Amino acid sequence: MAEAAKGRGARSNATGRHEPEKVEAFDDGWTADDVEAAPLRTTLTPERARTIIAKNTSPDVGFDRSINPYKGCEHGCIYCYARPSHAWMGLSPGLDFESRLFFKPEAAGLLEQELCKPRYVCKRIHIGGNTDPYQPVERELKSTRSILEVMQRFNHPFSIITKSVLIARDVDILGPMGREGLASAFVSITTLDRGLARAMEPRASTPAKRLEAISRLAEAGVPVGVGFAPVIPGLNDHELESVLEAAAKAGATSAMYVTLRLPLEIKDLFREWLADARPDRAARVMSLVRQTRGGRDYDPDWTTRMKGSGPVADLIATRFHAAIKRYGLDASRTPLDETKFRVPASARKQMDLFDAA
């Protein structure tokens, strides 16, 4: 097995499934005693997009439109369900996904154009449904920040999810919009174990920092929930109650969970990671995962793909529902207000000039 790249999640970089030729790694004789290879660096590529709002018809997602400021994610979470999307660009869902990133330089302008269309109908937009909107490159690029600024100007309702304390940077927008019923947030916490988090989500914020993000959002007036996602049987499932309790103490008022999903290339990447990072429990984890998926690594059925099925999945569901009741995370969520949406006069004038040109 290839040595893990420092600070990265995937252990390999297999060719994307849509490519006509496959490339495999091989042992070229170099060892740890030889001169170290150059570190894997992150590259950023601007993407010239025509639209910014993506539509979906998945019945189990909970929203029909989303914005993803980035393609690829530097957090490097080994289980990330977005990894296979990199294959559509001729890149690997492995190390390419977490090191070769794409962004939309005109994200804010594209969003403004779409919101100004006469036939546009306001509905909640979810930000970060595929890749994290607050991954490390956001500190400099501020793509997510620019999108939130447009949302605020238009009074457009949105929800957002992240694993990063960087979200707290934008409480000046999230706070007022949250208090007006226009914004809500979820922070994903998969473990309180720093060692496991570092191995499984190498460039995401530490668990303690994610709890800090929940506190700062709650203090600012943002309805904030915690996502225990994914639940990985035999690896982090024993922490379900402790994560929910810690999040509730930090200020979370709701919670959700998703059972580990291993579609397409993710199953091989996850197996490879398990064998390297947690060899002592790799066989047990995969056995339990298959027990939640009808004996397979993954079952894509719409009715069960988020939670799984069978006795192991049922036990997780029972524990989750008992825990959210115990810690006060079971309050019904108030829908975001879609009646306050307005196209500001400044945007109308700008669009008129654009049309005239």
Rank of each mutant, 00 (worst) to 15 (best):
Ser188Thr: 15
Glu149Phe: 05
Gly310Trp: 08
Gly310His: 11
Asp276Met: 14
Asp352Phe: 13
Thr190Ser: 07
Leu101Lys: 03
Ser242Val: 14
Gln152Trp: 00
Ser58Met: 15
Thr191Ala: 02
Gly251Ile: 04
Gly109Asn: 12
Gly7Asp: 03
Ala283Pro: 12
Leu211Pro: 02
Glu114Ala: 07
Val187Thr: 01
Met151Trp: 01
Val137His: 05
Arg50Thr: 12
Ala283Ile: 06
Ala168Asp: 04
Glu112Ser: 06
Glu74Gly: 01
Gly128Leu: 07
Arg281Met: 13
Asp64Arg: 09
Thr131Met: 05
Arg41Met: 10
Pro46Ala: 13
Leu141Thr: 07
Ser346His: 14
Ala213His: 02
Glu212Met: 10
Lys71His: 14
Trp88Ile: 15
Asn155Cys: 07
Gly9Ser: 10
Arg278Ile: 08
Leu211Met: 09
Arg83Cys: 02
Met286Thr: 04
Gly310Gln: 15
Lys209His: 14
Ala322Gln: 14
Pro263Trp: 04
Cys73His: 03
Leu182Gln: 00
Ser184Cys: 11
Val312Ser: 00
Pro263Glu: 08
Ile214Leu: 02
Glu21Tyr: 14
Asp27Ala: 14
Gly195Pro: 05
Ser99Gly: 09
Pro233Glu: 04
Leu315Gly: 11
Thr253Gln: 13
Thr190Met: 09
Ser164Thr: 07
Val231Arg: 03
Leu235Val: 08
Arg17Glu: 13
Glu245Ile: 03
Ile189Asp: 01
Arg319Asp: 02
Arg198His: 12
Arg119Trp: 15
Ala107Asn: 01
Pro20Asp: 09
Asp276Lys: 14
Ser85Gly: 07
Thr303Ser: 15
Leu111Val: 07
Phe63Gln: 09
Phe63Glu: 10
Ile125Phe: 09
Arg198Leu: 12
Ala323Pro: 00
Asp34Glu: 13
Leu262Cys: 07
Val231Tyr: 00
Ile53Trp: 07
Asp352Lys: 14
Lys267Gln: 15
Arg305Val: 12
Gly251Cys: 05
Leu260Gln: 06
Phe228Leu: 01
Ala54Asp: 14
Arg119Val: 11
Asn56Val: 12
Val258Gln: 13
Arg281Leu: 14
His321Thr: 10
Phe103Val: 02
Thr57Ala: 13
